[in-house]
């Protein structure tokens, strides 16, 4: 079960604007991206996020898993999260 850690210093605004205080980089997340990042901040694993999102959105599991995996890969690429 893949779990990720999010630095405590990471700042995310209500609108999804994300600021990395260590590097000065900024990113803009859409509402779903922000929701996923918030779930990661709450300590949910990738599998738990899939379950949560399937309950909330009308989407098939395979597409969701693929999109989530892509999104997490991007978050890791930019050092926004780290695999535990």
């Amino acid at each position: 079960m893949s779990k990720y850690s999010v630095p405590e210093t990471l700042a995310v605004s209500d609108s999804g604007f994300l600021f990395l205080p260590n590097t000065g980089e900024t990113f803009t997340l859409n509402l779903v991206g922000k929701e996923i990042l918030n779930l990661l901040q709450d300590g949910l694993s990738e599998e738990e996020i899939v379950k949560h999102m399937l309950d909330r959105y009308d989407i098939d599991e395979r597409s969701l898993e693929k999109d989530l995996s892509d999104f997490i890969m991007q978050l890791r690429k930019y050092s926004i999260i780290k695999e535990e």
Partner: peptide, 21 residues
């Protein structure tokens, strides 16, 4: 400490942000 956000063709920082490292 600051990170340059925008660098001109002369290599000058034209915008920057304070950072925490």
């Amino acid at each position: 400490a600051m990170r340059k956000l925008y660098i001109t063709d002369k290599g000058k920082g034209w915008a920057g942000i304070t950072i925490n490292d």
